[in-house]
């Protein structure tokens, strides 16, 4: 059929143009991302620790709780986030979920040298808190107290939440934005203003510590490709050389949780798209079929 040939020509040129401006152009523009190594959160550059003893680790962790809380073990954070930021520039995260999100080998290396493991020049977490064996014991302990299953948001809170806000989920670096009520007569909401002030104080310190305020990650899944994000989190230096964001050391499972959270917040319509799409397309298939019958009946005997 002649018309199908014409259609084939149109489709051909359309696809060539599409290929050129999308896959091809992006592969050229994002060469650095495409070429960046990805080792599936193996951290091959770090030394594998000796076998750790959780019981010994439990004793050693006493050195950590002057800064960190471990809520699941009944240890509250010694300072609130704003005070902690005054002291360190960033809040030391609660360690209850550390073993569930981070890679064990990474934790052991991190305790010995946060800058070496995190690939940054300076870190608010002091190095040399334990020797290699002690660090392995602490890592084993943190692993042993980690809950089996944690929610995607908990994984995010622990690994990223101290630096990154997610305003579409009302997450701030110092925690969830509380529900407050404005005074009816005046519209003044002091509790809200208090909270905002605290966030502001925290962010100023955080920006001082890192050189800039880390971006809000609300819709980062639409702004960066899946490949970019996983490679960036595995090793920020591979993508943004000299960046102040440390290698966080998440495990593969930990990363999947974090990504799931970011996707739920940043692309909330995904399940609905998948549910509605087939119906709309099915409708137009039926529409076209009926239109085809109409067309054939109208054009009968014309040629």
């Amino acid at each position: 059929m002649k018309e199908l040939k014409v259609l084939a020509v149109v489709v051909f040129f359309t696809l060539v143009t599409y290929w050129g401006v999308e896959p091809y152009a992006h592969s050229v523009m994002h060469k650095n991302v495409e070429e960046a190594k990805f080792e599936n959160f193996q951290y091959k550059d770090l030394k594998a620790p000796a076998k750790g003893d959780p019981a010994k680790g439990k004793a050693l962790v006493a050195a950590c709780v002057s800064c960190h809380g471990i809520k699941s073990q009944g240890m509250k954070a010694p300072m609130d986030p704003v005070a902690a930021a005054q002291a360190y520039g960033v809040v030391p995260p609660d360690l209850s979920n550390a073993g569930a999100v981070l890679d064990e080998k990474f934790i052991a290396n991190f305790i010995v040298s946060p800058t070496h493991a995190g690939l940054v020049k300076k870190s608010a977490m002091p190095g040399g808190m334990a020797d290699a064996q002690g660090a392995a014991d602490i890592a084993a302990y943190l692993k042993s107290i980690a809950p089996k299953e944690i929610k995607p948001k908990e994984a995010f809170e622990f690994a990223c939440g101290r630096c990154h806000a997610v305003r579409y989920d009302k997450w701030t670096q110092i925690g969830q934005t509380p529900k407050t009520k404005a005074d009816i007569k005046t519209g003044v909401d002091l509790a809200k203003m208090d909270f905002e002030k605290k966030v502001g104080q925290y962010q100023l310190k955080l920006a001082g510590y890192l050189g800039k305020l880390p971006p809000d990650l609300s819709i980062i899944v639409r702004a960066r490709s899946e490949e970019y994000l996983k490679k960036f989190v595995e090793n920020p230096q591979h993508i943004l050389h000299g960046t102040a964001m440390p290698r966080v050391g998440v495990s593969k499972e930990g990363y999947e949780k974090i990504y799931k959270y970011l996707e739920e917040v940043g692309d909330p319509s995904k399940p609905k798209r998948e549910a509605v799409g087939p119906w709309v397309i099915g409708y137009f298939v039926l529409f076209s079929f009926l239109a085809y019958l109409w067309y054939k009946s109208q054009w009968k005997g014309l040629k």
Binding site: F284, S288, F289, A291, Y292, W294, Y295, Q298, W299
Partner: peptide, 15 residues
């Protein structure tokens, strides 16, 4: 009738 048929095909592609 032909326009309508082409529109149908186009909307499958579009959606």
């Amino acid at each position: 009738s032909k326009d309508t048929f082409v529109l149908g095909i186009y909307f499958i592609f579009y959606f």
